[in-house]
């Protein structure tokens, strides 16, 4: 995973609530066996016409937002399926950070595992950022994970909370399987105890 560095970029306003993962990446694009290349299909069915041409009214097709790096979203972004293709499509497009009032649980976990920072803010802060984002290229938003702050175009800072472990993994670009394997002995101890106390729980092959 790449290290997450402070950046400032164009933010795209995406105000609808309950944007589900089927909307972010429709099921027919899940036939891929790779993690990459999904950016072109991000929001596919609302981004393109049936003949494959771009819909002019879709925000990411507008010149100001074609290189967006921050997405400011409505409540409960990423609900629905567990498909990690949703963060893969977002990051492949170039989105590095999504800001909303709330996110669905599985999408939240999946995003951090792919270097995509999700930030929860209050409804008022989100609405203010939506207004900033509506100004397109004229207003860049900065994301400083190290110091846990969003910097609005006018310089105002919005502090945010982030889980310390996730922050550490993002900043260092760490693979959490490697971290867990450092606890290998404890896992083995657990397994040995469970084998005695609940022997039927381990191994199910018939």
């Amino acid at each position: 995973m790449k290290k997450f560095e402070t950046f400032s970029g164009v933010a795209v306003p995406f105000p609808g609530h309950n944007i589900d993962t089927d909307r972010i990446i429709p099921a027919r694009f899940l036939k891929t066996i790779k993690r990459t290349g999904l950016g072109v299909n991000l929001f596919n069915d609302i981004r393109y016409n049936e003949d494959g041409s771009e819909r002019e009214d879709f925000v990411l097709n507008q010149p100001a937002y074609r290189k967006s790096e921050v997405l400011v979203a409505g409540d409960n972004f990423g609900c629905g399926s567990s498909r990690e293709h949703a963060p893969w499509a977002l990051t492949d497009f170039g989105i590095k950070c999504v800001i909303s009032t709330s996110f669905a649980d599985i999408f939240f976990n999946n995003s951090f595992k792919n270097g995509l920072l999700l930030i929860r803010v209050s409804p008022e802060q989100r609405d203010a950022l939506l207004e900033d984002a509506a100004r397109g290229e004229n207003a860049r938003i900065s994301i400083d994970l190290e110091n846990q702050k969003i910097v609005r175009p006018d310089g105002e800072e919005i502090p945010f909370d982030v889980d310390p472990f996730r922050k550490h993994c993002l900043l260092e670009g760490l693979d959490d399987i490697g971290i867990t394997l450092q606890s290998g002995e404890k896992i083995s101890d657990f397994e040995a105890k469970q084998k005695v106390s609940k022997p039927w729980m381990q191994g199910a092959r018939v």
Binding site: R83, P87, N109, N110, K113, I177, T180
Partner: peptide, 21 residues
């Protein structure tokens, strides 16, 4: 029982655990 993403599928295959709160 709960749903997980692909990175977590790999995490379970490799470690038989998940990082959770």
């Amino acid at each position: 029982a709960f749903g997980i993403g692909t990175s977590e599928v790999e995490h379970v295959l490799a470690t038989q655990t998940l990082l959770q709160k």
